[in-house]
Structures are given as C-alpha cells and as structure tokens.
Design a protein around this nucleic acid. Structure first.
Lengths: 151, 151
DNA sequence: CATGAAAGTCATCACGA
DNA sequence: TCGTGATGACTTTCATG
C-alpha cells in the first residue's frame, strides 16, 4: 500500500467505471502495471466490490429510517440479527454496544411501507421492541472517505 | 423504466465494472442499445454514480459509530448540518425528525479517533450535544436493495 | 515490479429498419 | 428503440528489463 495504491483507490472510489487505460494515464504508469495493482487490491480484499449507486427516489424508495431493534439477550441473539439482515428493505444491520441491540438502516416507499416493515420485524423471534428515527433530508451519503496512506 | 432497465440496474448495482458487451449479452440485447439505456439512466439521475467499495479496516478505519447530534433550533440549523457533513470522517449526515437533530455515520481508526472527532464536532457552532452508538459488528452494509419495476 | 508489444475484445457512432 | 457493421481504443497476457 504505497502512494500509487491510495491514488488508485481514491479514483476508483469515486468512479468505478473508469477504463484501466485512463486510470493508468492519471496515475502515470503503464496500463499493465496498474491493472496488476488493481487485481492485487481486489484479491487482498482492499477493494470489496464495485457498485452503482441508484437514486432511491427514482425506484420508489422515498423514505429512509434508522431503527434500533432491542433483542432478548441470549443464545439466539445472532440468529435474530441474521434474520433482520436478510430483509431486503434493510440496507445495513449493525450489532451495537449498549443494551443488546441492532441498528438498522431502512429504505421503504412511504410511512405505510415502514409500518408494515416494522410489523414484520416485530414478529421476528427474539425481537423485543423497536425505536425508529425518520430521515427528513439526507445531506451526505458516501461509503468511504478519501483514502490516506496507511503504512 | 421497464423490465430491461430494472435488470440493467440490478446488474450494475452489484457489478459496476462489468463491460457493456457482457451486460448486453446478459440482458439479451445489442451493445449499442444497452449502452444507450445506461446513458439515459445516468442522465435521468437514476444511476447517481459508480463507486468502489473499500474495506474500511484495510485502510485503517476500524471503528464505525452512529452519532446523534442535537443542534440548537433556529436560523443556523442547516449551516450546522453542512459543517457536519463536510467532515471527512462523516460518511453520512441525515437531518432527522424529532428534536432538531442530525444522525451521522462515522468511520474512524479507533476510540481515540472517535474522541477527537466528537470534540471537533462539539466545537461546531450550533451543536448542543452528541449521543454516540458504537458498532461492534456489521452484519450487512449495502447501498440499495434489489430494484423492482416501478411504473 | 514495471514496460512494451501483440491479439483479441470492446466502446461508440452512423445508418436502416 | 433496436440491430448491424466499421473503426479506433482498450484490455489482457506475456516476454523481457
């Protein structure tokens, strides 16, 4: 992980569909050398995947919410998390510190969709209660900050 | 937005670096036609951008936290949000319902990094207090669910 | 690790249906 | 909107510094 690698990461982070040739020109190296670095970053798991960001409103998902899910502590806690994560409306599922809880990021069509989803969540085994925060406006939404060299 | 468009979106959502030729083969159309559809989806803003997902731990960001920031209500509320969103450690900034607050998704190196960031946040004009939840384990982290046809 | 050459593949455009 | 065909650019591999 040298300066060239971080440069490559920062470019791909913002523009995953750039051609390898242009990427090479930008970092000032031969395309073959750059391709090898990218492959290595992929193999090492530094680059997890390439994804297109889709405007949620354009595909009928106008409502974003964050929901804390309080689960009964014990053996089944992780199972409950897996079931929560398996729901398509759940974009993110984090197991958090504090009283055995999950924090979910949800995307649904509207408040009616949220109500139905919360009902479904409430019926999952191990779920005690939920506490939702509705997003009124999103000011920033990225997946990673600029990469800095880490020796 | 027909079935072909949603098919294209679902493919690019999971693999933004697929070649247009292969994309065309997958959806069963000529490359030129598919390219035109993709360009149109980009122009309409349905596809916002293409990004590489970088493993945060591999670049020295091992700690994820969600932080509610309580701000003083009034004229400067939005300004405060902009300042919060401008911090590189802030991956997401959402203005939420409930007592004038922002919800931030943060990524830092460790608890020391979090402490320093919270101090910086606390000094931003208009910020009253913060309330953080630390992520112990992330079970799922995507940017969008499978796209379904929306007429 | 990087380069440069070579072969196959692809992006892109004009045109006709 | 779509498919075809042409062309220049690109990807990918490999032999070699």
């Amino acid at each position: 992980m040298d300066a060239v690698d971080t440069h490559i990461l920062n470019i791909l982070r913002d523009n995953a569909r750039i051609s390898n040739a242009e990427l090479a020109r930008t970092v000032g190296m031969a395309p073959s050398a750059v391709l090898e670095r990218v492959r290595k970053l992929e193999r090492k798991g530094v680059i997890e995947r390439y994804e297109a960001r889709i405007n949620p409103k354009e595909v009928g998902l106008s409502l974003t919410a964050f929901t804390f899910v309080h689960v009964e502590e014990g053996v089944g806690t992780l199972d409950t998390g897996q079931k929560l994560a398996a729901l398509p409306e759940v974009l993110e599922a984090h197991y958090t510190a504090g009283s055995a809880s999950y924090l979910l990021k949800l995307r649904v069509s509207d408040t009616e969709g949220l109500a139905q989803l919360l009902q479904r969540i409430g019926r999952i085994e191990g779920v005690r209660d939920t506490n939702s925060t509705i997003v009124l406006r999103t000011l920033k939404e990225t997946s990673a900050p600029a990469v800095v060299e880490t020796p």
